[in-house]
């Protein structure tokens, strides 16, 4: 079983402080960690490898320093690591990022691709499903339990607002996972030693044969104008009188603020 786990290096939000004057994140000196959801994706991949054999490859797109996250993944149990790093990738939104990941997966080959349900910095939960769309393969998001997996077949539980769905799929398939799926293991000493020596394969635009119009700022339909915490304005007005009067007053109010 060829398993690819997509991970993202994110700032450790537990350590983040906000600049009180500008209301922006102070990223200086904030340690980077593997996105916590991705650790559950990695655990899922390692468990399947232990059960059925094969190898686990961790894949990330990011700046050269994202190599640290890949080495950490190897210390936990991944066999190989690929870093997608290229100046041309800079500024990619979720659409372009998914395209890049999909191009890489095409080159590397996989039976199952695992992603965390979302990254704790962007919180979009888009990259996993979008990558599957680019690959033209099925995806199952919010996986809470893997019930069965064998050659060309997988059955999982997908977390819903109330209860769960049971979803079957053929392979290859992309799964995004939630924290309840498993308990990620700690690194091992042998893993740490392997991580120190491991060769991290690097791939850029040329290696994954990415169309320059689909990547980076140029390939990103999302334009971020401004990031701010929305101010919540609350006003309250009590309407009095007989029910008919209250209804009239309410309609007048709603018309006044152009809701009707």
């Amino acid at each position: 079983m060829n398993i690819i786990v997509c991970i993202k290096q994110v700032p450790d939000t537990a350590e983040i402080r906000i600049n009180p004057e500008t209301n922006t994140l102070m990223r200086e000196g904030v340690p980077s960690i593997i996105n916590p959801f991705d650790l559950h994706a990695l655990e899922a991949g390692i468990k399947i490898k232990e059960q059925l054999g094969g190898k686990v490859l961790v894949l990330t797109m990011g700046p050269p320093q994202a190599e640290t996250a890949l080495r950490e993944a190897i210390s936990i149990g991944a066999d190989e690591a690929v870093l997608l790093s290229d100046r041309a990738f800079a500024g990619s939104d979720t659409w372009a990022t998914s395209y890049i990941l999909a191009q890489a997966v095409r080159k590397l080959g996989a039976d199952i691709i695992f992603c965390g349900k979302q990254a704790i910095d962007g919180d979009t939960a888009q990259v996993g499903p979008e990558t599957a769309e680019f690959l033209g393969i099925p995806h199952i998001s919010y996986v809470i339990k893997i019930e069965e997996i064998k050659d060309n077949y997988i059955r999982v539980q997908r977390l819903m607002d109330e209860g769960y769905d049971i979803v079957e799929s053929g392979l290859p398939v992309l799964l995004t996972v939630v924290k309840e799926l498993n308990q990620p293991r700690m690194p091992s000493l042998k893993g740490k030693m392997a991580a120190k020596k491991a060769e991290i394969k690097k791939m850029g635009q040329a290696e994954i044969e990415a169309d320059e119009n689909n990547i980076g700022l140029k390939g990103s339909p999302t334009q971020v104008k401004n990031i701010f915490a929305p101010q919540v304005k609350t006003e309250r007005k009590m309407l009095a009188g007989a029910p008919e009067e209250q209804v009239d007053a309410l309609i007048a109010e709603l018309r006044g603020i152009k809701c009707l």
Binding site: R185, M186, P187, L189
Partner: peptide, 11 residues
């Protein structure tokens, strides 16, 4: 089990 998985039993 964590210690075993992390290779501490055979240091």
């Amino acid at each position: 089990k964590t210690l075993a998985q992390s290779d501490f039993m055979g240091i």
